[in-house]
Amino acid sequence: MLESERQRIDEINAAMTRLFEERMQVSAKIAQVKVEHQLSLTNVGREQEVIASQVAQLKDATLAPYLTDFYRDVMLISKQYQAKTIKGLGQTK
């Protein structure tokens, strides 16, 4: 049983890696839009909306604090990647 659960975790991790890469590609495009429209790197209101929306989709409400942490981490990584992308465009923001 443990091996089948580990195999399932491996499958989930592979899917998450594919989605992470896709998310980062979109984040790079968003960084370009932020430069073009002189937008701030951080939009706290948008981040709160996204987290609330995702938490509302949980079937197991006890996971809410963990999902909140997960999205905060993902958003931080995305902003770091956007900052690097913006710097690569010769812009500072």
Rank of each mutant, 00 (worst) to 15 (best):
Q38N: 11
I30D: 06
V50A: 03
R18P: 03
S4G: 00
R46C: 06
E3W: 00
T68D: 08
T92E: 10
N43S: 09
Q48P: 03
S40E: 14
V33L: 03
L2K: 01
T68E: 15
E5P: 00
N13Y: 05
Q32H: 06
E21W: 02
D73W: 08
S53W: 08
Y81S: 14
L41R: 06
K93P: 12
A61Q: 14
T85G: 03
N13A: 14
E49R: 15
I51T: 01
A56L: 10
S40F: 06
Q38I: 10
E49T: 10
Q38C: 07
I86Y: 04
L58V: 08
Q80N: 14
G88S: 05
L76I: 12
Y81C: 06
K34L: 06
S40K: 13
R23A: 11
V50N: 04
F20I: 10
A14N: 08
E36K: 12
M16K: 07
L58H: 05
E21V: 11
D10I: 05
E3Y: 00
V74H: 12
R6C: 07
Y66D: 05
R46Q: 09
T62A: 15
T68I: 02
Q54V: 07
S78D: 13
Q91F: 11
A14M: 06
R46W: 09
V50G: 01
A64G: 01
I12R: 08
Y81V: 05
M1E: 13
K79T: 02
L67W: 03
D60K: 00
L2Y: 03
G45V: 12
S40A: 09
D73L: 11
I77S: 14
L63W: 02
I51C: 02
S27V: 07
M16S: 04
V44D: 15
F70E: 11
N13T: 07
N43G: 04
D60L: 00
L41V: 02
M24P: 07
E22R: 13
L58P: 06
M75S: 06
R72I: 10
Q25V: 04
Y81H: 11
R23T: 07
A14K: 10
K87S: 13
Q7D: 09
S53V: 07
G90N: 03
V50Q: 01
S40I: 05
E3T: 01
D10G: 11
T68Q: 09
Q54D: 08
